[in-house]
């Protein structure tokens, strides 16, 4: 049999820069790096906390440096990107979501998902910062008594 000669084009290292869909994909993958780094920062803080007040204050002071603020800003942006893209991918990775026999559109999943994430994040922030509205704070106190289980 005569051999079929073919040309195999190499896959260039920058293949992902050539298409917006690939760029978004790579950014989503890259967001994992920032989650990892952010987890390290948190672990560092926990470790500092176990070493006493001075160490913890030192860690907190470090967080206020411009470099760390910049890092957190970038990490937050990636977290947002990851959240949005995660919900965009959700309908493709889970069994088909249907409501009343009709397939739920991706846009609806993203809006509801990102909306819920934002609401939960805002709630946790307000709770920790102690700025929950009085009614809500009361409800939370009833659900989670101070000092844990009695």
């Amino acid at each position: 049999m005569a051999e079929v000669r073919t040309y195999r084009r190499p896959m260039p290292a920058d293949w992902w820069t050539r298409n917006p869909s690939y760029v978004v994909y790579m950014l989503r993958e890259a967001s994992a790096v920032f989650f990892f780094l952010y987890a390290l920062v948190l672990l560092w803080g926990l470790n500092a906390l176990s070493q006493g007040e001075a160490a913890f204050d030192g860690w907190r002071a470090l967080l206020a440096t411009p470099a760390m603020i910049a890092f957190h800003a970038v990490a937050a942006a990636f977290a947002l990107l990851h959240t949005v893209t995660w919900f965009m991918v959700l309908p493709k990775t889970a069994p088909t979501l249907r409501l009343g026999g009709r397939i739920v559109p991706v846009a609806a999943v993203v809006v509801v998902g990102v909306g819920a994430s934002a609401a939960i994040s805002a709630f946790i922030y307000a709770w920790v910062a102690g700025i929950l509205p009085p009614g809500l704070a009361e409800a939370v106190r009833n659900l989670v008594p101070p000092g844990g289980a009695s």
Partner: peptide, 8 residues
């Protein structure tokens, strides 16, 4: 790895 461009 869920690039998703295939479906597009």
């Amino acid at each position: 790895t869920v690039v998703g461009y295939c479906s597009e």
